[in-house]
């Protein structure tokens, strides 16, 4: 299935505000029962974008939600079943970035890089897209299997903000699913997309960062060259190079002990 076709079939029509939302046929909420699972889904995003709301919706759990940046601090896990596949879903702490040395960011960063989730869903606030794209672009450097869940669409509409999700999807090279997690609107599309990416029905082509600093690009290229010799199959060499330039200890360790070689696409 091509990217464009997929996008079209997922498009939410504005009049879908009234369509039934509670008949997501194939979803079975598993709460915290997820002993054996087929796929791992990570939920990442800025604080206060509705991650916990999405998480609760999918798992039937009751993680605390609140209109307050910084509410979820510890990592929460839960499960759901969709089309007879079992998914474990991890609600990562909300972060603005993945580049700092704060504990939250380390948890989120290491999980996405070393935990290698089958799908990473970025929950973004549609009313403040630009800020949310900061994290999105960083995650796209680490992993390809990403969905952008464009949440709070109702808020955006209320404030006269329209987002053309087709343009956005094309620019980012990943599927973009508009949702209203509070009422469940769009969650079925999100589920379908999670499923498609997990079983490999759908391939993404995320964009990579373009820096206009010659010096930085040169430095990155140089390290990427060295990494390619030692870890030719590593999918995210540029990110690793960047982290080395930032002195990230967990990356340094994983290079020295060769663990980095285990990361596959």
């Amino acid at each position: 299935m091509s990217f464009q076709e997929q996008k079209l079939s997922n498009n939410i029509q504005p009049d879908c505000a009234n369509c039934p939302i509670h008949n997501i046929g194939n979803l079975k909420k598993l709460g915290i029962n997820m002993d054996d699972f087929d796929f791992v889904v990570a939920l990442a995003g800025n604080p206060n974008t509705g991650k916990s709301t999405v998480f609760n919706y999918l798992t039937g759990l009751r993680q605390h939600t609140g209109n307050w940046p910084g509410k979820t601090v510890t990592r929460a896990e839960g499960g759901f079943e969709y089309h007879n596949k079992k998914f474990k879903i991890v609600d990562l702490p909300g972060t603005y970035s993945l580049l700092s040395t704060s504990v939250d960011e380390e948890v989120a960063r290491d999980f996405i890089l070393f935990g290698q989730p089958d799908v990473t869903v970025i929950v973004a606030d549609a009313t403040r897209l630009e800020r949310n794209l900061n994290l999105t672009l960083q995650i796209l450097e680490i992993t390809d299997r990403v969905i952008l869940c464009l949440n709070l669409i109702d808020e955006a509409q209320r404030n006269g903000i329209t987002i053309n999700e087709r343009i956005l999807a094309k620019e980012l090279g990943i599927p973009v699913i508009p949702t209203v997690a509070r009422s469940g609107r769009g969650i079925d599309d999100l589920l379908k997309m999670i499923y498609d990416i997990a079983i490999g029905n759908f391939k993404t082509k995320p964009i990579k960062l373009k820096s206009n600093s010659e010096e930085l690009n040169k430095a990155i290229d140089e390290i990427v060259g060295l990494i390619s010799v030692e870890f030719p199959n590593l999918p995210n060499k540029r990110w690793v190079a960047l982290r080395l330039l930032e002195g990230d200890q967990s990356i340094i360790n994983s290079i020295l002990n060769g663990e980095l070689g285990n990361i596959k696409i």
């Binding site: 897209l129 630009e130 800020r131 794209l133 900061n134 999105t136 672009l137 960083q138 006269g160 903000i161 329209t162 987002i163 053309n164 999700e165 343009i167 956005l168 620019e171 980012l172 960062l209 373009k210 820096s211 206009n212 600093s213 930085l216």
Partner: peptide, 16 residues
């Protein structure tokens, strides 16, 4: 760099 990229993309996709 990241924010430059972000605002470029946002400018294309968002209308007020």
């Amino acid at each position: 760099t990241i924010y430059n990229n972000a605002s470029e993309i946002a400018n294309k996709a968002v209308t007020y």
